[in-house]
Design a protein around this nucleic acid. Structure first.
Lengths: 258, 258
DNA sequence: CGAGACTTTGACCGTAGTCAATTTATGTGG
DNA sequence: CCACATAAATTGACTACGGTCAAAGTCTCG
């Protein structure tokens, strides 16, 4: 199974794309160079969504004063959507490496596989949303160490799905600066955190290669995944941190009685 | 125009819901008590999405060690979706006040308004996504002061849409603790930040009422909205913070040549 | 009027940021 | 293949923003 094919398979989470179709896709690959912005709106009609075949991208926003926030990384097998992304001047999807993508919706496919692709895209969108929430937890409630480990675990897991992890090791085309912008930390502090993790032998990062030893232990230490079985607990812990509330009367209030 | 009707109108951003329908909706209102979890899956079929008529809710996740992260607040006019939310044990939507909601999809409506509602829901989802990104910027790249002001501006703007702002003032049924959990800060620090803002006369918060003086100035000070006209700048500022990248060879690599 | 939940404050600590310099890649042109 | 130019990664010294702990003050509601 080629790396490209596995990337495509990952999109669907199943064998939606057969070899023939991959080969077909392959002929229509589009490439982006490092640092270029991916603007899908400007492309011809059907290209509303593309799948990354190889390379990394990230979604980010710039603040007026130069601060940057990276919302997440896009890896092989991930979908890039048009959406508001490219609309809000300040937000963008940028290629972090040479990037190869293909249209997610194959032209002239049979209805069955169309539907399969549609489902795959929906599922992919859900996963992406989950990742957004994870990322928010990282920045809001995890310490620097935890943030770094948590993100590395996520990347490792995602890369594993597309066969880009060898043992404990995978490659990341990411400078410490980008890491910092993703995790809401300073470059210096990222550097020190990595150094510390390295010293403890849990994580090794050197020249674009990451090794995670004992992932289970790492996951536990940074609350990766097992985010409390809530249900009951949520309301319990909230019930006592609420204030009485009365909505402000609307200026032109007019009750509609039942 | 009643407060309820305006809340509904806000959903669509236009006069999708007329008085008659509102009255109809009104009969089918469902209520949640403070602190209760909103689980739409468990409800009868069509109720996949509901609109908040009055009250606040929030979306949050608990970590095993008790840390909490609030992802955002849901106000009158906002849509609560079923999605993964209630699936991932740890994540939930919880009512912060008494909450009144109605099904977003009116039963037995004519096709035209069905379509209108569908569009309204889509747009609402987009706005929500935008808010997620905003929130991420807050936690990742803004200082405590900025975070607080930024969030207050967002809430004010959203409440204004549904007529719940009077002049500069609106109500928030939110304890400082919830504020802290939303912004990734400690209660104590939230308190001090509010105190400082109050001292400067820019923002006043007291017993659930917020007043924002000179919103324009506030917005500028915390990079609200005007997040840099990027486009060109994005790639420019990134082009130099990238490392050469070669994907890790997949174990079973097999090239498909063009 | 109490009890409990919130808010506020003080004292002190520590994580993470800033500034600046040095070292180490990485790449490029000769 | 080497020398130089740049971008990255490191490190040290110092700062400061925000966290923690604990106590006191307020507000609400029964």
């Amino acid at each position: 199974m080629s790396c490209q094919a596995s990337a495509l398979r990952a999109l669907a989470g199943g064998p939606v794309f057969d070899a023939a179709r991959v080969r077909d896709f392959w002929r229509r690959v589009e490439r982006y160079s490092v640092g270029s912005q991916i603007c899908l709106d400007q492309r011809r009609g059907s290209h509303r969504e593309v799948v990354i075949i190889s390379g990394w991208a990230c979604e980010l926003r710039l603040l007026v004063d130069g601060r940057r926030q990276i919302f997440g990384f896009l890896l092989p097998g991930d979908v890039i959507q048009a959406r508001a992304t490219s609309g809000v001047g300040s937000q963008a999807v940028v290629a972090l490496t040479r990037l190869e993508v293909v249209a997610a919706h194959p032209e002239g496919a049979d209805p069955a596989s169309r539907e399969a692709v549609r489902q795959a895209l929906a599922e992919s969108a859900l996963r992406k949303e989950e990742r957004l929430y994870d990322h928010m937890v990282r920045m809001g409630r995890l310490t620097a160490r935890e943030r770094v480990v948590h993100l590395l675990l996520e990347l490792c897991e995602r890369l594993e799905c597309v066969g880009l992890v060898r043992g404990d090791t995978f490659k990341i085309p990411i400078t410490q600066e980008l890491f910092a912008d993703a995790l809401g930390l300073s470059v210096v502090h990222i550097n020190r955190t990595l150094k510390e993790l390295r010293r403890e032998g849990l994580v090794t990062i050197r020249s674009g290669s990451v090794s995670l030893r004992n992932r289970a232990q790492l996951a536990e230490r940074c609350s990766y995944r097992p985010a409390a079985e809530v249900a009951a607990r949520v309301s319990a812990s909230l019930r006592h941190s609420l204030r009485p509330y009365r909505e402000m009367d609307a200026p032109d209030r007019m009750r509609i009685s039942a």
